[in-house]
Design a protein around this nucleic acid. Sequence first.
DNA 1: ATAAATAACTAACAACCGTTAGCGATGGAA
DNA 2: TTCCATCGCTAACGGTTGTTAGTTATTTAT
Lengths: 196, 196
Amino acid sequence: MAKIQSKRNSTKKEVIIEKASRLFREKGFGAASMRDLAEHVGVEAASLYNHIQSKSEILQTICFKVANEFMTNLEAVEASNQTTLKKMEMIIRVHIRMMLEQYEYVYISDHEWRHLPEPYLSNFLNQRRSYRKRLADIIEDGTAKGEMKAIDPYTAVLVILSAISGIDSWQRSRKSTTAEALESNMVRYLIEGLKR
Amino acid sequence: MAKIQSKRNSTKKEVIIEKASRLFREKGFGAASMRDLAEHVGVEAASLYNHIQSKSEILQTICFKVANEFMTNLEAVEASNQTTLKKMEMIIRVHIRMMLEQYEYVYISDHEWRHLPEPYLSNFLNQRRSYRKRLADIIEDGTAKGEMKAIDPYTAVLVILSAISGIDSWQRSRKSTTAEALESNMVRYLIEGLKR
DNA sequence: ATAAATAACTAACAACCGTTAGCGATGGAA
DNA sequence: TTCCATCGCTAACGGTTGTTAGTTATTTAT
């Protein structure tokens, strides 16, 4: 075996995906070229294909990595013994932290998924629909138990997820506010709107 | 003068921009080609240039049309004699309605602005920053007057605008809920989080 | 040391990109 | 009828796209 390890504890494939995530976020998937990417990796464009199969494979990897991470977390939350309000707070906090800590990946999964080729596109959208449905179910459950106000659960899910995904525009503009402050402010606003 | 009017009461340039908005939304600005667009207009790609100057001119037109519409509305609201809470509700409702009625335009202005060439890009971002600042000022004013709870105004602006911009994912998936229901649900959630 | 595997390189392909040049058809104004 | 602006067309430009072929260099395993 030749070296499959780069300087850090990561495969070259992982390095490529990491650099790509930055590039895709900055320029958009369509406008980012493989020659662009290659330059950032420090290699010729053709050499990338020793590690990846195609440009869209990179996008697939990123999108499903993020989707799986959220889904795994949701399952843990669902299985936990918490009030529905607390469950929602846990989910909101994870979303905010993922957005702050894995900004590039989450951003791409949020904004560039339409460039996924079939059948991955359908797969991704199904997974997303299912995720939102299960979130809405938690809220509906909370309303039924009288823990939350009677709000349309789909609207709530929409507001919550969209609000968090909007942190990207904060990322670029308001480095002055700390991440912790943002998280607590946002949780407060979003959870307060759920309490009865 | 030859005919500058199309069948409806709109310039051919307007028809192009309308078709382009659909295309840009579906494929993204970068991935939508002029030949694509020409086909939808029913003309050869080169003929488009009898009516427009460049591909990015279309994007500029759309982005600034939307931005100006929002800015004009904001000025009207600022000048009105209303409680700050009512002002915010008016703004929120206009945003939701614009999103529902001019979906393609608003979506593009929200998501494709990064492909604007300079100096339009800086212009657009300045205008956006100014818009959000003035929104935050209204909220801060409301807090100072005791009409609203003491929430970080930038966080509130972020949550509100992002939540509304997320309606796009509802557009595609939940035609069952009426627009009116969505609007009232969303206003309720967002305004409720502001009340003290 | 030798063989095998891995990953870099150069060159090139076919397709597509936005855009321009130039030409013919059309239709209203004089 | 003559004139001229408008708008459609075809052809083509120079450049970029993702990707493959073929080859060489490098590293690891035996």
